[in-house]
């Protein structure tokens, strides 16, 4: 894996029918590249939570990944409402998910903590009224 492998997916807000599709495709890609299974799982879990947040909170978003010999970098940016208080959003159990989302099994307020737990580097940037950008880095060596 000397060269960088990269790719991207569109994520459509509110589209529960396809929820998890982008993360599963990233997972297949990593499997194809022969990445260690435990690392694949961490990448897939973190990506899935980020993908779900775009589906739940934003109108649309994009997932972009870069894989090289040293690390996997996953960027998810969305056109959504943004997050006013990131520190609060990062707290386990904090959620503004609407009732219908909770009835689908999401909105436990564990998504951002889950992303952080599974990444080696985690960055979140958000502008209210514009959108949110998440960057997840997982080391391969």
């Amino acid at each position: 894996m000397d060269e960088t492998t990269e790719g991207s997916f569109q994520i459509i807000g509110g589209n529960f029918g396809n929820a998890g599709e982008a993360s599963m495709q990233l997972k297949s890609k990593l499997t194809e590249l022969g990445v260690n299974e435990a690392i694949i799982r961490r990448a897939a879990i973190a990506t899935f939570e980020a993908e779900m947040n775009v589906i739940i909170y934003a109108a649309a978003g994009r997932l972009h990944y870069y894989i090289n010999r040293d690390k996997i970098t996953i960027k998810i940016d969305d056109m959504g409402p943004g997050i006013e208080n990131i520190e609060l959003a990062m707290q386990e159990g904090y959620s503004t998910a609407p009732d219908w989302v909770r009835e689908m099994g999401w909105g436990a307020g564990m998504g951002l903590p889950n992303m952080k737990k599974n990444s080696d580097e985690f960055r979140i940037d958000s502008v209210v009224g514009e959108g949110t950008t998440i960057e997840i880095v997982i080391n391969l060596s």
Binding site: F16, G17, A19, G20, E21, S23, M24, R41, I45, F48, E49, M52, M104, G105, W106, A108, G109, M110, G111, P113, N114, K117
Partner: peptide
């Protein structure tokens, strides 16, 4: 709660749940 499945799972587990939508399979 799917986030809990993602957070607390150990591989080779059985999931017992009341939700049956496709996103549960993806989780």
């Amino acid at each position: 709660m799917m986030s809990a499945v993602l957070y607390y799972h150990t591989p080779d587990s059985l999931l017992i749940t009341g939700l049956t939508q496709p996103h549960v399979i993806r989780t």
